[in-house]
Simulated assay, not measured.
Amino acid sequence: MSSMQKMILSTILITILFIGCGKNQPMQKSNKINSVVTLITYKDFVESIGGAEVVVTSLIPPGANPHAFEPVPDHIKQMSDADVYFKVGGNFHFEEELMSGVSVSREKLTIIDCSTGIKIINNNPHVWLGPDQVKIILKNIYSALVRFKPDKEEYFNTNLERFLTKLDSLETQFKNKFNAADRKTFVVYHEAWGYYANHFNLVELAVEKEGKEPNVYHMKNIVEEAKKNKIKVIFSEPQTNRQSALAVAHEIGANIDFINPHPAKYLNNFIEVSNKLLESFK
């Protein structure tokens, strides 16, 4: 065997040994807080506060309708592998079914009810759409993350204050604009915007009634109210069937537009929704 062949063979053997040793090395566990949330919007909340210290999985993917979504075994596994589950709380029914399976899978999972401290109004679970409620949600997330990583308290607090400052600024900006608007009533398909409407002293009229398709009597009332308030736009959602909303829009000669109650980026969506509502009041 020539010296060149010996050198090549030695190189191959060293490479094989190196790869083999690498495979036998135990995988290091990530130092990040492995977090699971129900909704994509809460992923934004946790990532905004946790920053580089968290990895977040949303059980319900973007574009899916949470009211029609059912948990599957993979969701149970994701939660069983997690350190903490930030649940919406309140009366979000999807989570009730989900938790019945998780309690058996992993008893050590830390569960944070993000609705703690929030007053639920009219059994409306959409607390993440009201600015005042979002501030409570963010503080609940912050407190939980600090318990996991006390040494990162200052980092988490800086992120929290940054988010709250942006939200406060937007809140003031749009409150002034809504106060100056001639009209305050808007029509939506799904009754999701009650907390938002209350915050800005607006009136939400919903085509859907208690999560169900409207009956003839309710449809008649909605059409009458829409005409009385000179509604020009019916707001539907990307995640829902909009046939009933189209029927109302056709009856009163209004257009259909979309506002998203499950945004991937809360602050960006806050601006978009607020501007669309203001435009509809003109």
Rank of each mutant, 00 (worst) to 15 (best):
M1Q: 12
S2P: 07
S3G: 03
Q5C: 07
M7L: 15
L13H: 03
I14L: 15
F18Q: 04
I19Y: 14
Q25T: 12
Q28M: 11
S30G: 12
N31W: 00
N34T: 10
I40G: 01
T41D: 13
K43F: 04
K43A: 10
E47Y: 03
G51K: 01
V54R: 11
T57V: 12
I60D: 05
A64Y: 10
N65S: 12
N65H: 03
A68D: 12
E70T: 11
V72W: 00
V72E: 10
I76H: 06
K77R: 13
K77C: 01
S80M: 11
D83N: 14
F86L: 03
F86Q: 09
K87A: 08
V88H: 11
G89T: 10
F92P: 08
F94G: 06
E96K: 15
E96N: 12
G101L: 00
S103D: 13
L109G: 02
L109W: 02
T110Y: 05
D113E: 14
C114D: 08
T116S: 14
G117M: 07
I118H: 02
I118K: 01
I118A: 01
I120M: 13
P125E: 02
H126D: 05
G130N: 00
Q133C: 06
V134M: 09
V134G: 03
K135G: 00
I136P: 00
I137G: 08
K139V: 14
N140P: 04
L145M: 05
R147D: 13
R147Q: 15
P150K: 01
E154T: 13
F156M: 05
T158D: 12
T158K: 15
N159M: 02
E161Y: 09
R162F: 07
T165Q: 10
L167R: 08
E171R: 10
T172E: 14
N176K: 15
F178R: 10
F178E: 06
A180D: 12
D182H: 11
R183Q: 12
T185H: 09
F186V: 03
V188E: 01
E191P: 06
A192V: 02
W193V: 01
A197Y: 06
F200M: 04
V203Q: 14
E204C: 04
L205H: 02
A206E: 06
V207D: 04
E208P: 05
E210A: 14
E210V: 09
K212F: 00
K212T: 07
E213S: 13
E213R: 08
N215E: 04
N215A: 06
N215P: 00
M219I: 07
V223D: 07
A226T: 05
K227F: 02
K232F: 00
S236R: 05
P238M: 00
P238S: 06
N241E: 01
S244L: 05
V248H: 09
H250S: 14
G253M: 09
N255A: 15
I256H: 05
P261W: 01
N269Q: 07
I271P: 00
I271H: 03
V273M: 14
L277H: 08
L277V: 03
E279I: 03
S280G: 08
F281L: 06
F281R: 05
